[in-house]
């Protein structure tokens, strides 16, 4: 009698099985500033530039949003193309010969910065300021900036005919700041219309659709429906629009008030990463503290859970940590 045949299972794997290998991304040959290189075909020109340390300025681009290519500051020259191309959204193509610092590129970048600098208040946009220095932009070339309009005037403008300017002032978007809730302010005198807040409020992050671009041309603006105050709109106060705003047009009310009072001092601020205490999702919070008080909350763009986006609790619900008032009985 022979031994019974026992089925022996294979030994337990010591680690989980590996995922099947992804196909190698197809590489394309391109040239950036005379440097031949190979990059994956799904890349944009911006990604290719950044991979070799070519610093390309961007204002309306953000890693966690769909590129809208409206600010046009990232334009590059492609050999043989009639116009410049936006690096942030244009995909690489085989044989592209790209110049990122030609005279045409520098002129367009300078002019975009002058156009913005002469029409928008960039005082809380350090990034834009540094670009202005780099490209030698002189917004004062267009004359003294026009004074602020009264509240609501710009919001009521209809598309079409406008009054012919006399050229004595450079038209601006200056207007009073909108303070209509306790959490954040909207200072559209600082808005460069980069569309980021609309994207973050819409399908790129929050899917709330409380704001959209309204109006046309120079009178285009970010608006709620019929320009109602935020509390009457669909806004859920997630603050993701603040998180993506590149110019400080959207700002924590706490920051806005401290800036008004002259007490905002970033050199005295600390950033501390922690995990949001509210629910089980585990969002990374970056607490900005000054004089041991939380003054602002953000989330790192590369945090795998949030990609930089938060909800109202994580973003604004921090007062309990520093409310020293005696509890009432």
């Amino acid at each position: 009698m022979s031994d019974p045949i026992w089925f022996t299972p294979p030994p337990r794997p010591s680690r989980p099985p590996e995922a099947p290998k992804k196909a190698e991304p197809k590489q394309v040959d391109i040239i950036i500033d005379g440097r031949p290189m190979q990059v994956p075909e799904a890349w944009t020109i911006l990604e290719a530039c950044r991979s070799i340390g070519v610093d390309t300025p961007t204002l309306c681009y953000l890693e966690n949003l769909t590129p809208v290519n409206v600010c046009r500051i990232c334009v590059v020259e492609i050999k043989g193309a009639r116009t410049l191309a936006p690096a942030c959204s244009r995909k690489v193509e085989p044989g592209m010969d790209i110049r990122t610092d030609s005279e045409r590129v520098r002129l367009s970048r300078k002019m975009v910065l002058e156009f913005l600098g002469s029409s928008v208040d960039l005082s809380t946009a350090p990034q834009a300021q540094s670009y202005m220095n780099r490209y030698d932009a002189h917004p004062e070339r267009y004359g003294p900036p026009a004074a602020s309009t009264v509240a609501g005037e710009r919001d009521a403008r209809e598309p079409g005919h406008h009054h012919t300017p006399d050229g004595s002032h450079a038209a601006t978007v200056h207007q009073p700041v909108k303070v209509d809730n306790d959490l954040y302010v909207r200072d559209y005198a600082k808005c460069i219309l980069c569309y980021k807040c609309v994207e973050a409020c819409g399908s790129d992050a929050q899917n709330t659709f409380a704001i959209a671009v309204a109006g046309r041309g120079f009178d285009a603006r970010i608006s709620t429906e019929a320009n109602v105050p935020l509390p009457d709109s669909a806004c859920v106060y997630c603050g993701n629009c603040i998180g993506v705003c590149p110019t400080g047009a959207l700002m924590f009310k706490s920051e806005h008030e401290m800036r008004e009072a002259g007490t905002w001092d970033e050199s005295k601020q600390h950033k501390t990463d922690t995990i949001c205490p509210y629910c089980g999702v585990g969002c990374t919070l970056t607490l900005h503290t000054q004089d041991n008080r939380i003054v602002k909350v953000t989330s790192p763009m590369d945090a795998s859970v949030t990609h930089g986006h938060l909800c109202i609790k994580g973003r604004f619900g921090f007062e309990f940590a520093q409310n020293t008032a005696e509890p009432k009985d």
Binding site: N69, V70, C71, R72, I73, S108, M111, V112, F115, L116, S118, S119, I192, L193, V213, G215, R216, G217, F218, D219, A220
Partner: peptide, 8 residues
Amino acid sequence: GQCVPCRV
């Protein structure tokens, strides 16, 4: 009004 060069 979408892109800066034309809008301004």
